[in-house]
């Protein structure tokens, strides 16, 4: 079959990128500090952690669920990785005898945090409790676990190898941005090129039909939440690396920003619709809006209002698009 390039269709499918480019140009004109290397790199670094969470959460939304626990998992992950990676010379180490190589510390952290994903997934798939409730519960538990573990004290003085992940550059690109790009690429690959991706699209679109078609709905759902928790745990590691300490108060409301980004990016809360390019655009749009309002000096409270309006507006548009088709 010959595929003709349909410009109209292309524009319709990528409206969100058109909006982003327009926004980018307007921002560049509005403030001359916007288009500096320092500013752009700062925006990207700030949004990378939210972005990593978003490419995890979008799977939950795609399967017609939600994940509210990532912000708390970020906190727990940052505390665990920090406690395992404090500089050996530092006198007030939380775990005095422990001196693990950084990769091992990260591995342990990620494994522990991903358990929350298994719990989320199992609760949602097998006990059928609503995802909102299950992940609200694990959110509270994960946050409390971080606080109990650290007594709510920050854990500073991290090894330079760990900090490099959050603060370093490779070929003048921040490492954290590279990691985000990898996560986005892997998520995108899973979404379009694997059996798992097709399964989750079907489950979100019509879970009964998916079951009748022979898809193991429960197993797939568990993996969706495991992936989301995995993304969040890596986000936590990077946050600790970037800020130079672990903190049980870190990552507060990050899941909401990630849900907002996925939503603005066209991931439908009625399930079955998600594109990785859309989600990336959603992350960038919210990041640029935040940044330009900061640069032109808009009252931070108004910034929240604008963010709220963008989220609502994008969903209204999405619903209208779906309504028309029916």
């Amino acid at each position: 079959m010959k595929k003709e390039f349909d410009a109209k269709r292309f524009m319709k499918d990528n409206t969100i990128w058109v909006i982003f480019i327009a926004l980018f140009i307007v921002s560049a004109i509005a403030n001359r500090n916007f288009l500096t290397k320092a500013n752009i790199s700062s925006v990207l670094m700030t949004e990378s952690i939210i972005g990593i969470l978003a490419v995890g959460i979008m799977w939950c939304i795609l399967s017609r669920g939600i994940d509210l626990s990532p912000g708390a998992i970020v906190a727990l992950s940052s505390c665990i990785v920090a406690s395992l990676s404090q500089r050996p010379e530092y006198v007030a180490k939380m775990l005095p005898g422990v001196n693990l190589p950084v990769p091992v510390a990260i591995l342990i952290t990620v494994v522990i945090c991903t358990i929350f994903g298994i719990i989320n997934g199992a609760l949602i798939a097998y006990t059928k409790i609503p995802a909102f409730i299950a992940t609200l519960g694990t959110q509270l538990i994960a946050r409390a676990a971080a606080q109990l573990y650290t007594n709510a004290y920050p854990i500073p003085e991290l090894k330079p190898t760990l900090k490099f992940l959050g603060q370093g550059n490779i070929a003048s690109i921040p490492v954290i941005v590279i990691i985000f790009i990898c996560f986005a690429a892997v998520s995108g690959f899973m979404l379009t090129q694997t059996r798992f991706g097709k399964n989750v699209f079907a489950i979100g679109g019509n879970d009964q039909a998916a079951r009748v078609a022979g898809i193991r709905v429960e197993k797939n759902l568990v993996f969706v939440y495991v992936w989301s928790a995995f993304c969040a745990s890596v986000g936590g590691v990077l946050l600790a690396a970037r800020s130079g300490s672990g903190n049980s108060a870190a990552g507060l409301n990050y899941e909401l920003d990630a849900i907002a980004a996925a939503t603005v990016g066209g991931t439908s809360h009625t399930g079955g619709v998600c594109r990785i390019s859309g989600v990336i655009a959603g992350i960038l749009i919210l990041g640029v809006v935040k940044n330009i309002m900061l640069l032109v000096g808009i009252n931070p409270y108004w910034q929240q209002v604008v963010k709220g309006l963008i989220i609502i507006g994008s969903v209204v548009l999405d619903m209208r698009k779906n309504l028309r088709k029916d």
Binding site: A202, N206, Q208, A209, G272
Partner: peptide, 13 residues
């Protein structure tokens, strides 16, 4: 409708 098609996906999927 309820148990067969995944309405929003295409013919191939």
């Amino acid at each position: 409708r309820a148990k067969g098609i995944v309405g929003i996906r295409n013919i191939r999927d």
